[in-house]
Design a protein around this nucleic acid. Structure first.
Lengths: 238, 238
DNA sequence: TGAATAGGTTAAAGATTGTTAACTGTTGTT
DNA sequence: AACAACAGTTAACAATCTTTAACCTATTCA
């Protein structure tokens, strides 16, 4: 049986294309590599990939146009863009077209593969994995706890490990109190006096990241912990 | 249908136990928490967990004894130890009993969950995942590229991200030439002059780690790349 | 042989992340 | 009001990882 996952890679640089193809193949994927947008569209129809990785800058047909074409045929297939620089407009345009993720060039193939794995894991979820949420919507922001990325409508902030661990925990208890001591244990494995102060330092940092979104508030519940208060009010709010 | 993964946690500290239990439950696991070794053994028989997390220090029956008991019944169930300190004897003892991994106290629950995910991913592998090797055997050493850990028979070295990415790539091409330029692209996404020299610095570092094992040699293939030469000679060697 | 190129090695510089300390403010209790 | 406990904030500090520079050796080829 051949159950390999099929990846379409549209990339005009032959060397980058080849390396990337080879890397995916080494990890058990089946790859079709196309050097321009027209070939990629043709290939999409014949090869029937499970996921598309599209370079934005490409001859004949750019990545965005290609993605739009693909989206008219299939609204659900995961699409990941390779963007030349971190052009904000590109990023926004990409998400509007319905990209699932994007990676900035130059990218390490390690990272690209990690992202593809994540996309596939998520899209193939809903089985025994309901509890395992890794992307959170908080107000107008979205937070990807796997990749430690907090996205606003304007920019994208890379969080550190600890920032991310703490925010993830707060998100899991959105609109509920997150107990201070539990939080210390979950993140540091320990709740000594000094860790405790570190936590406060991180809370300050997180508040700075979140302050632009007026729907979000990271409230202190004195001698209990913190509560991440968001726009998505639920029944148990009070 | 209830396809939740069942986790047995044997931990005598009630607070740590509770936090850990809760964390696993939040992520969709079914958990049974036992406060001593005897209860844990009983629970093992009734609850039939998919994985066991055992504290080494426990009243009535310590983790090692408990693991030995479990191993007489089931030789394959994944076992993960929680060790009080990083006592080397404990670690070695643990692996001799047949542990799959261990985590040092104090541990962050984040980390513990990551390890459990990894163990389950691997033990449940062999499906459409053949290509995705993450633990490599090189000579007498073993290298876990997920957790960046290189284990010798004596010690355990934590590699940095870059060290690990490079070594992983060399391992995938064990006894074959790893092209220098590909390597630069895979790890840095780019092969400028300066990256190139960084690679050489890392090769020096890796050679230091590997020098104790006389079966392993990290050979330079001038103007091509490097070859990780190991004891496991294969047909295509020359 | 000798110049050019590739790679080896070490140390210093730079960047990032996390911890600690010191000072400030706030809340609740007596 | 006065004190203690808790939390907020900032900056200094420390640790770690990566890059860069400098100098050196080995190989290749004209």
């Amino acid at each position: 049986m051949n159950t390999k996952i099929k990846v379409l890679i549209a990339e005009d640089d032959p060397f980058i294309g080849m390396i990337t193809k080879e890397c995916f193949e080494t990890r058990g994927f089946e790859v079709s590599l196309c050097e321009d947008g027209n070939k990629a569209l043709k290939c999409y129809l014949e090869f029937k990939p499970d996921i598309c990785i599209l370079d934005v800058m490409m001859p004949l047909k750019d990545g965005f146009t290609l993605a739009t074409d693909i989206r008219t045929i299939d609204q659900t297939i995961p699409i990941l863009f390779l963007t030349a620089k971190s052009l904000k407009e590109d990023v926004i345009k990409g998400f509007n077209i319905g990209a699932d993720d994007y990676v900035k060039k130059p990218f390490s193939v390690e990272e690209l593969i990690a992202r593809v794995d994540a996309i596939l894991r998520r899209s193939g979820a809903g089985k025994s994995e309901e509890g395992k949420q890794s992307v959170f919507q908080i107000g107008d922001l979205s937070f990807d706890s796997d990749f430690h990325i907090l996205k606003t409508n304007k920019e994208e902030i890379k969080l550190t490990d600890k920032e991310s661990a703490i925010l993830a925990e707060l998100c899991r208890n959105q609109n509920q109190v997150t107990d201070r001591r539990s939080l210390l244990f979950k993140v540091w494995g320990d709740d000594s006096f000094f860790n405790s102060r570190s936590l406060d330092v991180y809370i300050t940092k997180l508040r700075k990241y979140l302050k632009n979104d007026l729907n979000i508030e990271l409230v202190t519940i004195r001698s209990k912990g913190f509560k991440l208060w968001t726009g998505n009010k639920k029944a148990f709010d009070q």
